[in-house]
């Protein structure tokens, strides 16, 4: 399955590669965090394709990246809320 993923990616344009990786990662991320899945996927897609491939192959590394992404998103959200309170 690994080589199938790699060879499918190799024949695609950089844009198509990101879309494919997103389509593959999204359901896995959704299973871990249904609420933030779309944001987490968007965030992870900013990483190198080779790292994204590694996450597809290793559920453990995917989980740790998803945890990191959730922490960043929550910190970001808290900051925005603090700024909004200041503005009011």
């Amino acid at each position: 399955e690994k080589s199938l993923i790699a060879s499918t990616l190799a024949s695609a344009s950089p844009e198509e590669q990101k879309i494919m990786l997103g389509e593959w990662l999204f359901p896995l991320i959704q299973a871990m965090n249904p609420t933030l899945a779309s944001k987490i996927t968007g965030m992870l897609l900013e990483m190198d394709n080779s790292e994204l491939l590694h996450m597809l192959e290793s559920p453990e590394s995917l989980r740790s990246k998803v945890d990191e992404a959730v922490a960043v998103l929550q910190a970001c959200q808290a900051q925005q809320e603090a700024q909004q309170e200041k503005a009011i």
Binding site: S13, P14, E15, K18, I19, G22, E23, F26, P27, S38, K39, T41, G42, M43, L45, E46, L73, C76, Q79, Q80
Partner: peptide, 26 residues
């Protein structure tokens, strides 16, 4: 003070064009 971070990260939805693609150099 800058509101640019509010739209970050670009959300990914299956079957929908992903906004983050604008940041990828061919």
């Amino acid at each position: 003070s800058n509101g640019s971070s509010i739209n970050w990260p670009p959300e990914f939805h299956p079957g929908v064009p992903w906004k983050g693609l604008q940041n990828i150099d061919p």
